[in-house]
Design a protein around this nucleic acid. Structure first.
Lengths: 133, 133
DNA sequence: GTCCCTGCAAATCCTTTGCACTCCT
DNA sequence: AGGAGTGCAAAGGATTTGCAGGGAC
């Protein structure tokens, strides 16, 4: 395992992901960290995100469209994506037990993790206009 | 809605996705269609994949790494990805009812669809070497 | 003939990487 | 000093797009 030195930039990246619940993209994280460290580079953000994901401190979320998002909440939970506004919401992990049981029955090998993603239109979007932007 | 004309290329793209169970990538589809139509272009494959997905004839699968895959089986089922060999397996949809019930309870809006993806190491890989390629 | 479909190549988007330099220990 | 961290910019992979020509109706 490679030695890890202190890094203000990495701390800033992690701090932002931890404090926000917005599941930011690399670019959003970059913009934010840039306020505190105007000379930070996007490459550094990506490198630190990769490192933080490796160590399990954050989770990377990939969807069918657009860039990856990052989540500082590594506890069991799922995600809901509004296909109108694109916002990502957290969903409780209630179904985890059932899913793992089903996995044991049907999986062609070991199951180490899984992702459950819901797609729909959130109440805010249904309420505000009734149409999809 | 735009009119749709007959297209040999699109038929070939669709036929291949329908007949294979390998969840091919755009590039794999391109390679295959190129056998029958040597002058087909990758852009055309992507355009036709997008069209077929729009009409619901096929499904696009995105994962945390690598290119998108396409699935001709649009029935309810989930996917298992071996993180050793990268193969994608189908998993039965047994848990769908539970998931939809949980979704109704916890979702911040309507739920129109969802994706459940499992990650692990398949038996083939566990068996053959015990290590990850 | 009209409009869709296609080939080609350039462009775009997102992400990774090489290299030289800086900072931490 | 020595190696990890960084900025910058170029490279990279995947996908999309503009445009002109070809094909279906």
């Amino acid at each position: 395992m490679r030695a890890t030195k202190n890094s203000k930039k990495r701390d800033a990246v992690k701090a932002f992901i931890m404090e926000t619940h917005s599941h930011p993209t690399a670019d959003e994280i970059y913009s934010h960290v840039k306020c505190e460290f105007p000379n930070v580079s996007l490459g550094t953000v990506y490198r630190n995100l990769a490192r933080l994901e490796e160590t399990g401190e954050i989770k990377k979320l990939s969807f069918t469209t657009g860039p990856d998002h990052y989540d500082g909440d590594t506890s069991d939970h799922y995600h809901y994506i509004c296909r109108s506004c694109g916002r990502i919401y957290d969903m409780p992990a209630e179904v985890k037990d059932v899913i793992m049981k089903a996995a044991k029955a049907g999986a062609p090998g070991t199951v180490e993790s899984h992702d459950l993603v819901f797609y729909g239109v959130c109440r805010d979007c249904l309420k505000s206009t009734g149409n999809n932007a």
